[in-house]
Design a protein around this nucleic acid. Structure first.
Lengths: 230, 230
DNA sequence: ACCTGAACACCGTTCAAGT
DNA sequence: ACCTGAACACCGTTCAAGT
């Protein structure tokens, strides 16, 4: 069975030069490109699907291309390297994570700073446990280009927010004595460690029921928050 | 320049069958095998060296073979698969980790259970920060065979020890109220999370000086221990 | 413009042949 | 017994050629 093949209606031989605007005027039919209309989108989806079954490291551009029904070289028109493809997946993932955290924060908007801080952790855990594939991708800094992408700023924004809440909590006397920065890093390491232990399949070996992983992880976070409370 | 090549003095054509003991009696000269005497050892060392510069995922059996000065197929006489090679590296790593923890525990033998529990964490951090390559390998469960190796039991032994110390701490009134198991997992996730954040290069993005990473991590652990103390 | 398909330099792994 | 080296089925990436 063949995929429906259409030719790019906007395509023109190089010598048939015209401006973009005039092309749009002359031909308003939305470009349904060769094969997909949106190979970029199809490749990102195929990559996620592949990662779900074979893991991040096993991703091959050729396999993803085959899943999308195109030739081995086609993806390189949209992503310069394998890393660029995986980085694009990571960017989508982090966008969704930021969304989940924002939602979680909004639900806790009326609560005290420490509980808002907790809400970020809960949002992170909820997201990571529900989207282990995406979490793995944003954590796999060996195969993505973290520094050379908006990933870095997104990450910094979340960190800054946590920082502000923690300082506010300290200022309003919600924390027991201790270095505020260290409490913050501890919370971050705790939540990150829990998520990693889960996706790395370490929960069973630590005597934790995987079906109650999220529930238990939130309970652990809550006990930690209680421990650092005044 | 050629590596020194010697022929296996114990080698014999298949039809020249004799028992192993008689072979040893007839020829006491220690087998200095073809090329290395110990290709297995050479491959493990080459693998670690390779991982230090290129990361675990990038390990190729061919590259490791070339580093050891042998043909592409040679390693497969000692390790059935690429995974088996990396798993062997992980086993060495975990043995050393267990050694470091034992040492750390011995130094704290006179202290209370909670401080002994802390000592395990400090031993782990010290080891992980000093041997990031080995830590990465034992954490990379995607590329090693964790379940089908002594790794699992080694890991369980450490966990059991932590469990016992934590229960003892609870029994002797050293812990503040809360679920003991959750305190234990929290400590584990905290320490694992810190080590991973370090090797994943996340310390700078969290505003932590990498040169003081170990020192700061221990301080964070100590503050956590203080938080859960009665 | 976007994709194909051949080509190049790599992989992991197997296996007959050499010593 | 242990290693070589060719072979097979894969990779990522490039690029001239097609539509």
């Amino acid at each position: 069975m063949y995929a429906m093949i259409t030719f790019d209606r906007n395509w023109q031989f190089p010598f048939m030069t015209k401006t973009r605007s005039s092309a749009q005027t002359e031909n308003a039919i939305p470009r349904h490109n060769y094969h997909h209309g949106d190979l970029r989108r199809a490749l990102l989806d195929a990559a996620v699907q592949f990662i779900e079954t074979h893991g991040v490291e096993a991703v091959s551009v050729r396999a993803v291309a085959k899943m999308a029904g195109v030739s081995p070289g086609a993806p390189f028109r949209h992503f310069a390297t394998r890393t660029a493809l995986l980085t694009a997946v990571a960017e989508e993932a982090l966008n969704r994570l930021a969304g989940a955290i924002t939602l979680s924060l909004q639900a806790a908007a009326e609560q005290n700073p420490l509980l808002q801080f907790r809400a970020i952790g809960v949002g992170f855990l909820r997201w990571a446990f529900a989207n282990p594939t995406h979490f793995q991708v944003i954590s796999a800094r060996a195969v993505i280009d973290f520094e050379g992408s908006p990933l870095r700023q997104r990450n910094d924004a979340i960190r800054t927010r946590m920082n502000a809440l923690m300082n506010e909590a300290a200022a309003t006397g919600l924390l027991r004595p201790g270095d505020v920065g260290r409490h913050q890093i501890a919370a971050r390491a705790l939540v990150y460690g829990l998520a990693r232990m889960y996706v790395d399949g370490q929960f069973p070996s630590w005597g934790l029921d995987e079906s109650k992983a999220l529930q238990e992880s939130i309970a652990i976070l809550d006990q930690f928050i209680a421990s650092i409370s005044a």
